[in-house]
């Protein structure tokens, strides 16, 4: 291979690798969905996953939303002041939170917390032969490990996004009323009057999609984990990176689908 064709070969290998990985993740997602509708169902695993993914993620998602809403209000106020539009702070803060920042930042925080945790847990189970043990105990690892986590994340992340939306708006309200001179009642009335059902609904749908992506990536990379501590570490890192990139890409596609003219 000449030095002129070597870069092309490297590009080709990377492209084939990416296409292969996309195909494998798609097959994994298809298999997960097929198991979702076929018994047996492991309800205890599902509730445990709901607790871990939903309830225990609430503090980090709430704090992220709170500070994001507060910063957003300050930015919109500063930007709006350039053309005497400071009064748009409540409405733009609310729409920014519920349509974009709530679901995206919530999804990314859950990706950091949950995709890593799932990948590390399943990866460790793989390298310590716990997944082989499940199989010998007549239990399908996809059904027992993947389906409950994916279902729990798909249902819980929209709830987290909803709570995050409220906290984010309240962060903006706190800054607006204490630092920017807004009247509390007027701020809340402007927020409420401006928001439409689909503003909130689209964010919740995004949350469900992001939850699905987070758990799927965590489970996929955990199941693909290599041997030893290095293998589990690599799987964990790959899960977080893949989930984060997929969330941002899916966010663009969903925004295009929901709001393009």
């Amino acid at each position: 291979m000449s030095r002129w064709t070597a870069p092309l070969a490297a590009l080709g290998r990377a492209t084939l690798g990416a296409l292969g990985a996309t195909g494998r993740v798609t097959l994994f997602a298809g298999e997960t969905l097929s198991h979702l509708v076929r018994p047996p169902f492991y309800f205890n695993e599902f509730w445990r996953a709901c607790l871990n993914i939903g309830w225990l993620s609430l503090p980090v998602v709430g704090l992220t939303a709170l500070f994001t809403g507060a910063a957003l209000a300050l930015q919109i106020y500063a930007g709006g002041a350039r053309f005497s539009a400071e009064q748009v702070v409540p409405s733009i803060t609310a729409i920014g939170m519920v349509r974009e920042l709530g679901p995206v930042l919530g999804g990314l925080m859950v990706a950091a917390r949950v995709a890593s945790s799932i990948a590390a847990e399943i990866g460790t189970m793989k390298v310590t032969e716990q997944i082989d043990a499940l199989t010998t105990l007549s239990t399908n690892a996809m059904k027992y490990l993947t389906v409950p986590r994916v279902l729990a994340a798909t249902l819980c992340v929209p709830l987290l996004v909803g709570v995050g939306d409220i906290i984010g708006i309240m962060g903006g309200w706190a800054v607006g009323t204490t630092r920017l001179g807004f009247n509390s009642t007027t701020y809340l009335k402007n927020t409420w009057d401006f928001l439409q059902f689909w503003d909130v609904g689209s964010g919740l749908v995004k949350g469900a999609a992001f939850g699905f992506i987070v758990a799927l990536m965590g489970c996929y990379h955990g199941m693909q984990s290599g041997r030893g501590a290095q293998g589990v570490g690599h799987a964990t890192k790959s899960a977080v990176v893949a989930a984060s990139v997929a969330i941002l890409a899916a966010n663009y596609l969903l925004t295009e689908a929901f709001f393009s003219a």
């Binding site: 310590t128 716990q130 082989d132 043990a133 010998t136 105990l137």
Partner: peptide, 15 residues
């Protein structure tokens, strides 16, 4: 599989 039992090298207990 119901006819088998297996002891794994590292026990492979579910943590």
């Amino acid at each position: 599989l119901a006819r088998f039992g297996m002891l794994f090298q590292g026990a492979a207990l579910f943590d």
